[in-house]
Write a protein that binds this DNA or RNA. Structure first.
Length: 749
DNA sequence: GAAGTCACG
DNA sequence: ACGTACGTGACTTCA
C-alpha cells in the first residue's frame, strides 16, 4: 500500500486517532469503510452528499473543514517516526502549544497521549507502528530514460504502476495555450522520481507534411486512462493543474483528487519567489534546467505546434515535466506541514483549483453588438476631442504620447507648476491634468476626457470583442492562483477584474456582460470586508460595534475624527479608513487629503486615539514580519517580505506598508475563496445545480441564475458567503453581503 | 522591453 | 528625507 493511503488508513483505523479526525460520531470502523470505498479523507468529504445515512452525511458535511485540517495533521504525524514527544516538534519549527490545543479540541486522545512527551507510551497496536519508509536515493534527471508509450500493453503497464504507487504526476500537452480551445495532443505520466513516460495521442498531421507516427488512438488511450484519472484512491499531481483539468474535462474526464505543485509553491513561498513556474522551481529546488518550450517548438515564425514535434523529442520534454512535477511535489509536501501552511493549502487553495477551472471553462456571455455600438460611439467623441485638443495646442501631435503632451503643456504653452518624474519627463498623469483643469486650462480636461474614452475603447470595447471565443461564444478569462502575493486571484486575457464601474460612461461596458435567455445575472459582493476584518484583527471595539449595529462606518469615522458628518468630512473619513488598510504615512495621507503633513499626522494621531487597537495591530504586524520575514492571515496564509530588511529606506518602508495590508487583504481573499469552494456543493444540496458561478472580482462573485431560481439561489449564496470563515475562523464582526440581479452585469449592481 | 497611464478591488 | 497609500493587468509610445 502506498505511503499516502497507508498513513490515512493507519490514522483512521488504528489507534492513533479515535474517529475521522474532527468529525464527531464517526468511529474507526465506519471510517475504515469510507476510506476503503473512497480512498482518502478528501474524497470521502467530496462525496459526502452521496452517503445514504442522513446522520453520517450531515456530520461529514458540517465538519468537512475540521476533517481537512486534521488530514494534514495526520499526514504530518504519520511521516514522523512515532512515538515522538510533542515538544520535539519545536525542532521542526512547529510550535507544540497550538498543536496540543488543536489535538485536544479535536479529540485526538490517544495521539495526544503518544505525543505527550512520554516516549514510553507504546502504540496500542502493531498497525500503528512507525511507518518505515524506504529511503532510496533520488536518481538524477535523465531525459533519455523516459518511455514513449505507443501500445496499449505499455499504457496498461504504466497505469498499473500508478495504481501501485498510489499517485501519479500528470501533464498534458496541447497544440495551444488557450485551454478552452486547445487540442489535447499527448499526456505524460510520472509514477516515481525518474520514472516517467509520454503517451502521444495526436502527433503528426493529416496533411502530407507531417506523417502520423504510430500511437494509440486518442479515444482508446483516454478510455483506458479515465478510470485512473478519476480514481479517488489515486492522487494526481500537476503543476498548474487548472490548465490540464480543463483540457481533460473537455474530453469527459473529471480528474480527482488533485495536488498542485504550483499552488503548493505559492503557499510556501508567496512573496519570496518572483516566479513559481516549473522551469524556475526546477532550477531553484532541483538545480536542473528543464528543456524549454522554445527549445522544443522554436519561436516566432518558425514556431511549430507540439503535435508536430518528433516523438522522441516530445517525450523528453513532456515526460521531464511530469518527472520534475513529481520531484517538486515530494519536496513541497514535507515542507507544507513543517512550515505550517497545510491549513491554507488544504482548506483554501487546493480545493479551489477545480472550482476556478470550472469557472474558466464556463466563461461569460458578452454581447458583441453592444460593444460594437459603444466602440462607434466612443470613436465619434474621440475624433471630436482630438480636433479641439489640437486647436487648443495650436498644432497637431500624438496625444497618446506623454512626452509630446508634456512638451506641449509645459514648454510650448508655458503652463506652470509641472513636476518631473524620475526620468526627467513632465508628469501628465490624472492628478496633474486635474490640477490644470481646476486652474481653468481647457486642454487639460479635454485630454482627460480623450484618455478616458480611448482607454475604454482600446482596453474594453475593442479588445473584449476579440476575446469572445469562437466555439463557445463566451469570454473565458484565466485566473492566476499565484498572481497576487497576498493570496488574491488575478485575471488575465482578458482581465475581468478591472471592468469599469466607477464612471457612468465606463459602467455601460458592464451592460454587455449578459445572461443567457432564461437566466439572470446575480452579483453578490461583500460589504466593506477589509474594514470589517481590520476591526476584528485589530480588535477595535468601536468599529466592531458599529459593524454589529449596521452603522455607516465612514460616517462614524467622520464623527469621531472631525466631530461633524457632512459630505466633506465623510469623504475625508473614507480616505483615512482606506489609508489605514494600506499602511498609513503622513505624507501619503497629506497628498490625498490636500493638507500638510503635520495636519495629516494630527489626524492619524486622532484616529489611533479614537480607535485603539489599530496602532497595536500595526506594531505587532511589523514586529512579526521583521522577526520572521513573513505575515500571516487568519487562515495561515503566508506572504514573505524579503525587503523588510532592505538597506534602502524607501524600499523597506514600502515593504512595511505592504506587510500591514497583506494580512487584511489576504484574509479577505481566503474568505471569498472558501465561499467559492463551498458554493457548488451548497447549491447542489438545495437543488440549484443549474446555477453557474462565472466570475470573481476580489470581494464579489457573479452568477448566472435560472430566472425561476433567483430567490432560492440568493438565499444560498448569501448564507455561504456570510458564513464562509466558519468554523475554522470565528470573526467578532458579521460579514455583510449585498446582492443584486438583472439581465446584465451592469443591472445587477 | 521599459515607462507611463489608468481600469478594478 | 521618501512627490509612497495596498494589490493587480492591459494598452500605448518610444528607445
Amino acid at each position: 500500500m502506498p505511503p499516502e493511503q497507508l498513513g490515512e488508513v493507519l490514522a483512521l483505523m488504528g489507534d492513533s486517532v479515535d474517529n475521522i479526525p474532527g468529525v464527531p460520531g464517526i468511529g474507526p470502523k465506519t471510517a475504515a469503510q469510507l476510506i476503503q470505498q473512497y480512498g482518502d479523507v478528501e474524497t470521502v468529504l467530496a462525496h459526502a452528499e452521496e452517503i445514504a445515512k442522513p446522520k453520517l452525511r450531515q456530520s461529514l458535511i458540517d465538519h468537512a473543514d475540521n476533517a481537512r485540517m486534521s488530514r494534514e495533521l495526520v499526514r504530518l504525524v504519520c511521516e514522523s517516526p512515532l512515538p515522538e514527544p510533542l515538544d520535539s516538534l519545536e525542532m521542526k519549527g512547529i510550535p507544540p502549544e497550538p498543536l496540543r490545543a488543536f489535538l485536544e479540541e479535536q479529540g485526538f486522545k490517544s495521539l495526544l497521549a503518544r505525543l505527550a512527551g512520554n516516549s514510553q507510551v507504546q502504540a496500542p497496536s502493531a498497525s500503528a507502528q512507525p511507518v518505515q519508509r524506504e529511503v532510496r536515493p533520488e536518481p538524477k534527471i535523465d531525459r533519455t530514460s523516459y518511455e514513449t508509450v505507443t501500445s496499449l500493453e505499455a499504457l496498461d503497464r504504466w497505469i498499473a504502476e500508478a495504481v501501485k504507487s498510489g499517485l501519479v504526476a500528470v501533464d498534458t500537452e496541447t497544440d495551444g495555450f488557450d485551454c478552452v480551445t486547445a487540442k489535447l495532443v499527448g499526456i505524460s505520466l510520472a509514477t516515481e522520481c525518474g520514472k516517467a513516460c509520454y503517451v502521444p495521442l495526436e502527433h503528426g498531421g493529416h496533411d502530407l507534411l507531417f506523417e502520423r507516427p504510430e500511437q494509440i488512438p486518442a479515444a482508446t488511450a483516454l478510455a483506458r486512462l479515465k478510470p485512473l484519472l478519476e480514481d479517488p484512491a489515486i492522487l494526481k499531481i500537476g503543476h498548474n493543474f487548472k490548465f490540464d483539468w480543463i483540457v481533460l474535462d473537455r474530453r469527459g474526464i473529471c480528474v480527482a483528487p488533485v495536488d498542485d505543485s504550483l499552488v503548493m509553491s505559492f503557499n510556501l513561498d508567496a512573496g519570496g519567489l518572483n516566479s513559481h513556474s516549473m522551469d524556475d522551481l526546477a532550477k531553484k529546488h532541483l538545480d536542473h534546467d528543464c528543456l524549454t518550450y522554445k527549445e522544443v517548438c522554436g519561436t516566432g515564425q518558425k514556431q511549430i505546434k507540439f503535435n508536430q514535434v518528433p516523438l522522441d523529442r516530445a517525450t523528453e520534454y513532456a515526460a521531464e515535466d511530469a518527472d520534475v512535477t513529481l520531484r517538486l511535489w515530494t519536496r513541497f509536501r514535507t515542507r507544507l506541514p513543517h512550515e505550517r501552511v497545510t491549513r491554507v493549502y488544504e482548506m483554501v487553495d487546493r480545493p479551489l483549483v477545480p472550482v476556478v477551472a470550472r469557472m474558466e471553462r464556463e466563461g461569460v456571455k458578452v454581447d458583441r453588438e453592444e460593444l460594437t455600438k459603444l466602440s462607434r460611439e466612443f470613436s465619434i467623441q474621440i475624433v471630436a476631442l482630438e480636433e479641439r485638443i489640437c486647436g487648443e495646442a495650436g498644432c497637431s501631435f500624438t496625444i497618446g504620447s506623454t512626452q509630446q503632451l508634456g512638451e506641449i503643456l509645459f514648454n510650448q504653452m508655458g503652463l506652470k507648476g509641472g513636476r518631473k518624474g524620475k526620468s526627467g519627463t513632465w508628469s501628465t498623469d490624472v492628478n496633474e491634468l486635474e490640477r490644470l483643469s481646476r486652474e481653468g486650462v481647457p486642454i487639460a480636461s479635454l485630454v482627460l476626457e480623450w484618455r478616458q474614452l480611448t482607454k475604454l475603447r482600446s482596453t474594453y470595447t475593442d479588445a473584449l470583442q476579440q476575446q469572445i471565443n469562437r466555439e463557445t461564444g463566451r469570454v473565458h478569462t484565466s485566473y492566476s492562483l499565484s498572481g497576487a502575493q497576498t493570496g488574491r486571484l488575478s485575471s488575465t486575457e482578458p482581465n475581468l477584474q478591472n471592468i469599469p464601474i466607477r464612471t457612468e460612461i465606463g459602467r455601460r461596458i458592464r451592460d454587455a456582460f449578459v445572461a443567457e435567455p432564461g437566466f439572470v445575472m446575480l452579483a453578490a459582493d461583500y460589504s466593506q470586508i477589509e474594514l470589517r476584518l481590520a476591526a476584528h484583527m485589530a480588535e477595535v471595539p468601536q468599529l466592531k460595534q458599529a459593524f454589529a449595529e449596521g452603522a455607516d462606518i465612514h460616517n462614524l469615522t467622520a464623527q469621531e475624527l472631525f466631530g461633524a458628518v457632512n459630505r466633506d468630512t465623510r469623504a475625508s473619513a473614507k480616505t483615512i479608513n482606506f489609508a489605514i488598510l494600506y499602511g498609513i504615512s503622513r505624507w501619503g495621507l497629506a497628498g490625498r487629503l490636500g493638507v500638510t503633513a503635520e495636519e495629516a499626522q494630527m489626524i492619524i494621531d486622532r484616529y489611533f486615539e479614537r480607535f485603539p487597537g489599530i496602532q497595536n495591530y500595526i506594531a505587532d504586524t511589523l514586529g512579526k514580519v521583521r522577526e520572521t520575514g513573513f505575515t500571516t492571515t487568519l487562515f495561515g496564509r503566508k506572504t514573505h517580505f524579503p525587503s523588510i530588511r532592505a538597506k534602502n529606506q524607501g524600499e523597506r518602508q514600502g515593504a512595511e506598508r505592504a506587510a500591514i495590508n497583506a494580512p487584511i487583504q489576504g484574509t479577505s481573499a481566503d474568505i471569498i475563496k472558501r465561499a467559492m469552494v463551498r458554493m457548488g456543493p451548497a447549491l447542489e444540496r438545495e437543488g440549484l445545480g443549474a446555477v453557474r458561478m462565472l466570475m470573481q472580482v476580489h470581494d464579489e462573485l457573479v452568477f448566472e441564475v435560472p430566472q425561476d431560481a433567483v430567490e432560492a439561489a440568493s438565499a444560498v449564496i448569501r448564507r455561504v458567503m456570510e458564513t464562509a470563515a466558519e468554523p475554522a475562523v470565528s470573526l467578532s464582526v458579521p460579514l455583510g453581503v449585498d446582492i443584486g440581479t438583472g439581465p446584465n452585469w451592469g443591472a445587477a449592481h
